[in-house]
Design a protein around this nucleic acid. Structure first.
Length: 111
DNA sequence: ACCTTGACAGAAT
DNA sequence: AATTCTGCCAAGG
């Protein structure tokens, strides 16, 4: 077996694991996850992987709504449809600033 | 086979 | 301090 980096095994699984560990009421950032995984500056890959996960998903409850960018903006809300993402987060007790951003100082969580 | 895009982040100007 | 550009890795056109 060549040492091909099977994203589905090396990256995807870890992303899933980390995201699944995000406690309700807390959020993390793509950069934090990427850094935790060792990919460092490839924060985009986290988002890309999550998107990939959504496709592979079907019954796995992946709380990817708890993943936002470092700015605290719900950049992926489009993938949830409307304000579903914000509603879910509010449901879990996440407080939003007037600008539609999350109070990262209070809800930021890191593995 | 090359170029563009993408759920970001950090450095540079 | 705010805006712009580049870097990251992979996938699609």
């Amino acid at each position: 077996m060549p040492a091909e980096r099977n994203f589905e095994k090396d990256f995807y699984e870890r992303v899933y694991e980390v995201v699944d560990r995000i406690p309700a009421g807390y959020v993390t950032t793509y950069g934090a996850i990427a850094r935790y995984l060792g990919t460092g500056g490839s924060a985009r890959l986290v988002g890309w992987t999550l998107n990939r996960t959504l496709s592979l998903d079907g019954s796995k409850p992946l709380p990817c709504h708890r993943v936002v960018n470092r700015n605290g903006e719900l950049t992926g809300k489009s993938w949830f449809g409307g304000d579903t993402m914000e509603q879910m987060l509010r449901s879990e007790g996440v407080t939003f600033l007037e600008c539609g951003r999350i109070n990262m100082n209070r809800h930021f969580w890191q593995p």
